[in-house]
Amino acid sequence: MSRAVLAGVVAAVRRSVSQVCDPEYPEVTIAELGILEGVSSSDGGSTVRIELVPTMLGCPALDVIARDVTDAARTACAGADVSIEVTFVDDPVWTPDRIAPSAVGFLAREYSVAVRSRSATASCPICGNDALEHRSDFGPTPCRSVEWCPSCRNPIEVVGRVDMPAAMEAAPASPALA
């Protein structure tokens, strides 16, 4: 396969897997959530390697995401003589900072879910109050904690545990969104 053809295949796979949606939020892509780390060729061009970053090591959706990404990649490179390798990497570490601003807005609007990141305080997705009170690190999924809005008196799901951004200070922003 020529270098140009290979670059085309990698680009097609990147486009395709970028559109894979999260099982928990079926309108939000894994690229927007910062789960997609990168797509590249390896083994002298015989393999297209897709790196994913798990939100939490114990996330039960990891296998579903890997399967959906594999399917999308296979479809995108149908006919090309390459194998697909989908792998979860431990480095970098996922943080809510990797979520794209557009997805933060969507999650607030459509799911009433807030996002806690270093770049923005988590504000109440229902009334906009930005003084949420921490209630529990452990919510309906491992990556979501529970807070309370004293203004509109609603419990609020927040993506990210309270010290996650600080604990993961060194993590870079997702290159998939760069």
Partner: peptide, 8 residues
């Protein structure tokens, strides 16, 4: 949740 984390 901690159980899930530990299994992860």
């Amino acid at each position: 949740s901690i159980s899930q984390d530990e299994l992860g």
